[in-house]
Design a protein around this nucleic acid. Structure first.
Lengths: 271, 271
DNA sequence: CGCCCGGTTGAGCCGCATCAAGACCTGTGG
DNA sequence: CCACAGGTCTTGATGCGGCTCAACCGGGCG
């Protein structure tokens, strides 16, 4: 469960080079950002809500959560960062974090000086574009989670989460044939989808009972992708358009409008 | 309920000038973006999910919602744009929208060519920075909504929404003494906080019963801000840091760390 | 061995959804 | 002018999904 190349000179370069055609200047600039490698053990806090994120992190190995403590002592997880993700791109480098960032498993991270990293955007608009596009993708995923916790049943929510993680992990080559490592326990899952741990357990059992998947020893295996998508009301195109931005920094060709969509109402009066 | 100046030359200039010290070049560039003024009546779709947002919109008057239709025919509202907001900044100009954008009341909007507007970021990094920061703010608000629908009771959610709108409207001078126009009906509100309209009604009654507020004829009046904040678990600093970005494009001075916060656990092993 | 952690099971309760129906208001057409 | 329709708000009754409390199981580990 790692994305770093073996010959990794600079983690960011290793992360971006395979997917982004960068100019020599861009490569040199990125390489010049100082970095260090860090190990966190499961459960450790990486960054604290309220703290200024002096460092920007790139996940190399393990799962990292973005969460907030809620008033009753519980926590709401809003996002799982996987190897290749940069959870700190979710917030502004000059503002206190509004979330905790926590290792959900043993993790290997690369850390970069925030100012240096973000400073790249001043001289290299394409790099700035990546930061911006990344924020948009995060916002889009957040919107999906709002729908998820707002409108769907426990089983649906869970199915949706598993689908989302499958798609995202597969994009990084970390899932094969619907099976992927997911080093989370049921408490973590219940915090992510806003469910009690007991009901989480029962929802998992329901998915197992329907032979949709198995989830053991931190590995999820999906047995029936189509039905899981159905149960979770997962829109297969969700992320399919925004992921390429993430992965390659480029915009995919725009698909033809589906004929099923309502024709836009455009009766606006122009003045 | 309008933010446009009376002598408004260009809506974006009128919007930005009072709050952003822009250079002559920046002003000229923004002024050069062609625009048109549009009127929408309540309920009209402004942009359709799946559509390419050829235009970027600035709300001048009225409320605009960002929502998605869910599988069971219902809709989840994720955001209310108010005068001064640009709902289209929530998504990438080159990607199909993942949400509907709809007029919740009679609205006056300014529309700009997406390409021209976003093209400004290539020559003016500060303008690109605004787009980026704006996306981060949206993501932050989305996170708050995730917590809201995921963890709080109906009455709390409602109270939280009213607090959030009060703060945002006040930042634009559209709320005074805890009273503001909110041209939404109970169905709209229930779609925003993921509640049945019946329970929405009863939650509203509960807030009224506690003498926290009144909500009549599209106007909300808060009678007891402190208790409303309490009921909604509204964090007063929520938005207080990110709003200035929105309003002025600049970062506020960072407050001293509160002593109450846990000291960050930083036992990471450096390798 | 005993402890702790994660997963599992049962029982009872409550918040919210759903179904049903009525009140009030506004606009519209006869 | 009234009759009617549609939209919005309101109220009551009923049911269910998920929460809570409580207990037990099994494995890993000191």
């Amino acid at each position: 469960m790692s994305i770093s190349g073996t010959s990794a000179s600079h983690p960011l370069v290793a992360r971006m080079r395979p997917v982004l055609k960068m100019s020599a200047e861009e490569l040199a600039a990125v390489s010049a950002v100082p970095h260090q490698l860090l190990l966190f053990s499961s459960g450790e806090l990486i960054l604290n809500a309220g703290e200024l994120p002096a460092m920007a992190y790139l996940v190399l190995e393990g799962f990292v959560s973005t969460s907030r403590e809620v008033e009753d002592g519980k926590r709401q997880i809003m996002f799982f960062s996987i190897p290749g993700d940069m959870p700190t791109l979710m917030s502004h480098p000059d503002l206190p974090l509004d979330t905790d960032i926590q290792a959900m498993s043993a993790c290997r991270l690369a850390a970069f000086d925030s100012r240096e990293l973000y400073g790249l955007s001043l001289h290299f608009p394409r790099i700035g574009h990546i930061f911006w596009a990344s924020a948009l993708v995060f916002a889009s995923i957040h919107r999906e989670w709002i729908v998820n916790v707002g409108h769907r049943s426990a089983v649906s929510r869970l199915a949706h989460l598993f689908c989302e993680m499958a798609v995202r992990l597969e994009a990084y080559g970390l899932a094969r044939e619907g099976s992927y490592e997911m080093p989370l326990n049921q408490v973590d899952l219940s915090d992510a989808i806003g469910l009690s741990r007991i009901h989480m357990n029962r929802s998992l059992q329901e998915l197992r009972r329907q032979n949709l998947l198995t989830f053991e020893n931190g590995r999820l295996t999906i047995h029936d992708w189509d039905r899981l998508v159905d149960v979770g009301h997962f829109r297969p195109d969700y992320l399919s358009l925004s992921l390429p931005i993430w992965r390659t920094g480029t915009i995919p060709a725009v698909p033809a409008r589906t004929a099923t969509g309502k024709t836009p109402v455009r009766r606006a009066i122009q003045i």
